[in-house]
């Protein structure tokens, strides 16, 4: 590449990444459950500029979710126990997907079920729909007894659901992992062997908070999933562990609020990142993060984002 070309590439760095056969224009995805079905954010976000939209988790039948109160703010984070409220896979295709189809953005359907068969049925229904580019299996919701955590906490169960869903779809398959396990790499390795194209992590950490005046839990569900900056260092550590253990791409999730946070995950080994709680706080967060990543790459003379992914230098301070 000549000097002129190099200069040009640095002014508009290449952000494209591939996640298990899914070609994305950039590594920014919206985390499931934090971006609705895309429409809610259209006034604030140029959806065409996103790498992918991951929609709210879908089940075979509509689900009404948990009773309120469902959320509580905690230091640098929030607890939620929404309980996988969703319109159901068929209503999503009929009512929500047409809106997203207008945009040039990859749509990833996040799916869950109470049984392996239900996961399979949802995957089958969604794989046949025009405008779905990938499937993310949620085996990690902490707020519903049978909302997937039963599958996500055990490597053999995680492998089983992955393998069965794999049999139903040719779409790129991501498996979203729970941090509520002793060793997340065991589960990651198990789903990789079962045919996952990528793993995304972490889902929320199970947490709790109490109103001391009433001596009642703040959430009707008693416990909830903790998200936001409070969990970021844990998420980053787990991405580091998993990226070193598996060969498939890792998608980093967990309290990413800024471009600097997203870059931490990319450098640590995530091939892409998902923006979650930040969408609630600043609806245009994804756009700000994308601009910030581009500015960083220009500032550091990085022409292609793949140069950045997994570039963490762990030499002793001073050596590198």
């Amino acid at each position: 590449m000549g000097p002129k070309n190099k200069q040009e590439s640095h002014n508009s760095p290449c952000l494209a990444v591939a996640i298990g056969g899914l070609e994305l224009k950039n590594p920014l995805m919206t985390a499931s459950g934090t971006f609705g079905y895309g429409e809610e954010f259209a006034p604030f976000v140029a959806l065409n500029r996103l790498g992918a939209v991951i929609v709210k988790g879908l089940s075979l039948e509509p689900r009404s979710g948990n009773p309120p109160p469902r959320i509580m703010e905690t230091p640098s984070g929030m607890l939620n126990a929404v309980g996988l409220q969703n319109v159901g896979a068929r209503a999503f295709i009929a009512e929500k997907l047409p809106f997203l189809r207008q945009y040039n953005v990859a749509v990833i359907a996040n799916i869950f079920g109470e049984t392996v068969e239900e996961y399979q049925r949802v995957a089958e229904i969604l794989s046949g729909a025009k405008g779905i580019h990938g499937i993310e299996i949620n085996i990690s919701c902490p707020n519903v007894n049978k909302g997937g955590l039963a599958f996500g906490a055990r490597p053999d169960a995680a492998a089983e659901v992955t393998e069965k869903v794999r049999g139903e779809t040719d779409l790129p398959l991501l498996v979203k992992l729970t941090p509520n396990v002793t060793d997340i790499t065991e589960v990651a390795l198990a789903v990789e062997a079962a045919g996952a194209d990528a793993v995304s992590l972490i889902n929320t950490l199970t947490g709790m908070s109490v109103d001391i005046e009433l001596r009642r839990p703040h959430l009707a569900n008693i416990t909830g999933g903790l998200s936001g900056p409070a969990i970021r260092p844990i998420a980053l550590r787990m991405v580091w562990q998993v990226a070193n253990a598996v060969k498939i791409p890792v998608v980093g999730i967990g309290g990413i609020m800024s471009a600097a946070d997203a870059l931490e995950f990319l450098i640590t080994g995530a091939s892409a990142v998902q923006i979650g709680t930040a969408n609630f706080i600043r609806p245009a967060a994804t756009m700000e993060i994308l601009d910030g990543i581009v500015n960083y790459m220009i500032r550091h003379g990085i022409g292609d984002i793949t140069e950045l992914i997994g570039s963490l230098n762990t030499n002793q301070a001073g050596e590198g």
Binding site: G33, E40, P67, P68, R70, I71, N80, V82, P283
Partner: peptide, 14 residues
């Protein structure tokens, strides 16, 4: 009700 987003996405204010 307590809200996270105010936009209908978080489903927190049920």
């Amino acid at each position: 009700e307590r809200m996270a987003c105010g936009l209908g996405a978080c489903l927190g204010c049920a």
